[in-house]
């Protein structure tokens, strides 16, 4: 890769991190299609690079969450039991299937992400915390100015579905937060703030599991990964700082349209390459 290609990869990762922070999702859903559509990168290398870069972003954000006691480590390690297996299986599948199929599947999952994004933007959660005064787990909610106590539940179904989150993450190079957060919140009954923090912590472990497969398969380009890590970290930091000032629903909707475009483009490209359309 020449200097121009390296600069383009860095900028693409920064763009993904910036946009991901604005949309409140991990950068993987944006980084992978940007790498494929605009840089012409092989889908498998794009997925491997994104997954390795996500380890860094997850570690940085969850290190803050851990200090604030927002991460439910107990639940995270239990759910990761199935998630890491899903991630390894997903990554192994990705190394075996043709690139066009991988691209098509990515486009379909991106469509789901788009629906979740639009839903979250148009109908922001208004539900109160399901607090329990005798709950075992506790964190301090800065916006409410009080401690929140809670217990989690239905670990079995949550763990089963977490396998799917791991599968998507390992196969597509995404964090899988759009699957993990609803599992933690809606199924396990974890308050939203703790669910986001726990998901962030879990993403790094899941991505690490999938990355072992790509690393051994020789699909991880160290220079590209270094640039992607730096780009996504810088981009997400600037995106987060702007997001705090903007909080614009219209802006989020506009950027969500980009997700829809990527989804469409990936499906069409994939099916065309596969000779289906």
């Amino acid at each position: 890769m020449g200097p121009a290609g390296m600069l383009a990869a860095f900028l693409a990762a920064a763009f993904a991190g910036f946009l991901g922070a604005l949309l409140g999702i991990g950068g993987g859903s944006i980084m992978v299609p940007t790498f494929i559509i605009f840089l012409g990168m092989d889908p498998k290398i794009a997925v491997a690079t994104s997954l390795a870069a996500l380890i860094a972003t997850s570690a940085i954000s969850s290190s803050v969450y851990l200090k604030k006691n927002l991460v439910n480590v107990n639940l995270a390690v239990v759910l990761e039991g199935t998630t890491v297996i899903g991630s390894i299986v997903g990554a192994s599948i990705a190394t075996l299937i043709p690139s066009w199929l991988l691209e098509t599947i990515f486009g379909i999952v991106l469509a789901y992400t788009f629906v979740v994004m639009i839903n979250r933007t148009l109908r922001p959660p208004t539900r109160d915390y399901r607090t329990n005064p005798h709950g075992r787990f506790v964190f301090f909610d800065e916006s409410l100015g009080r401690e929140i106590r809670y217990n989690y539940r239905r670990v079995g179904p949550a763990a089963s579905l977490s396998f799917l989150a791991g599968l998507a993450s390992g196969m597509l190079g995404i964090g899988g937060g759009v699957i993990k957060v609803p599992i933690l919140d809606l199924i396990a009954g974890v308050p939203m703030k703790a669910a986001v923090a726990t998901s962030s912590y879990m993403i790094g472990i899941t991505a690490s599991a999938g990355s072992t497969v790509y690393f051994a398969a020789g699909l991880i380009d160290p220079v590209l990964v270094a640039l992607a890590i730096l780009g996504i970290v810088l981009g997400s930091r600037s995106g987060a700082s702007i997001m705090n000032r903007l909080r614009s629903r219209t802006l989020r909707l506009l950027f969500s349209i980009l997700l829809a475009y990527y989804s469409y483009k990936m499906v069409v490209r994939g099916l065309t390459m596969g000779g289906i359309i």
């Binding site: 390795a52 380890i55 570690a59 991505a207 690490s208 990355s211 690393f215 991880i220």
Partner: peptide
Amino acid sequence: LYVGILTVILTPPTAL
């Protein structure tokens, strides 16, 4: 370079 990449990849399981 490869040790660096492995360090990044193995950071989460080490924290585990």
